[in-house]
Design a protein around this nucleic acid. Sequence first.
DNA 1: AATATATTCAACCTTTTGGTTGAATGTATT
DNA 2: AATACATTCAACCAAAAGGTTGAATATATT
Lengths: 111, 111
Amino acid sequence: MAATQTLDRTLTALADPTRRAILKRLSSGEARVTEVARPFSMSLNAISKHILVLERAKLVKRRKVGRDHFLSYRAEPLDAAAKWIDETRDFWASRLDTLEQLLRAEDAARK
Amino acid sequence: MAATQTLDRTLTALADPTRRAILKRLSSGEARVTEVARPFSMSLNAISKHILVLERAKLVKRRKVGRDHFLSYRAEPLDAAAKWIDETRDFWASRLDTLEQLLRAEDAARK
DNA sequence: AATATATTCAACCTTTTGGTTGAATGTATT
DNA sequence: AATACATTCAACCAAAAGGTTGAATATATT
C-alpha cells in the first residue's frame, strides 16, 4: 500500500476529536468497547464505528476474549505522521535561504 | 475558538494528499493560485477549494496583488498537531521511564 | 433452558467533502 | 475599447462521514 495512503488514514483518524479522545483513553491502557464508549454521549454503535476507523489506521488493535473485545493502542502509525509534520514544519528553519525566498517573492510581485 | 477545533481543522487539512502536496510546494516558497494548481490533474476550481481549506486551517496565507493572489505557507498550526502527536505517542515511553526510576530508587533504598 | 450482556450488522438519514462545469468579477494588455 | 488572464462564485453531483435505531450473533450467567 502506498505510504501516502497510510498517512491519509492516520491523519483522517486523528482529525476527529472523538477518535482522539478514544486514543488517549487507550494510550493509558487496554479497555473493552463498552468501557471505551461509556464517557461519550453518543451511541455505542457510533463508537464502534470510530473504533473501526482507528483500527483501519492501525492505531488500535483488537484482542477478542469470549464476548469481550479488548482494544489496545498502537503508536507506530504516529511515527510517519510526526515525520511528515516535522519535515514540513522545519523546512525553513533547516535552510538559511529565507532571504532568497523573500527576494523571489518581491521579484514575482514586481512583474 | 476551542483548541480542539483548531486541531481538527489542522489535521483535516493535512489528511488529504492533494493538500499536503500543495503545502509542500508552498513550504519552498510563495506561489500564485494558478502556479500551485498547474502540476495537478484536477480543475483550477478544485484546487481553489483545497486552498480554502488550508486557509481556514491557517496553514496558508493569501496576499492579493492586483489580480494575482500570492499564497504562502505558515508553519504555526503544525506545532499544536506535532505536540498532540508527541504527547500521545510517547505516553508509555515516559511512563515506563518513571516506573523504572521508581523501581531503581526502591532498589537503592533497599541496599 | 431462559435471560442478560457484549458486540456487530444493516438500513437509513443528514451533512460534508471533493470534484465538475459555466458564469461572474476584477485586473492587465493590446 | 476589446480582449485575455487570474480568480472566485454558484449550482450541481456522487460518494463518504458521522450519526441514529433495530435486529442479529455469540457468549455468559442464573
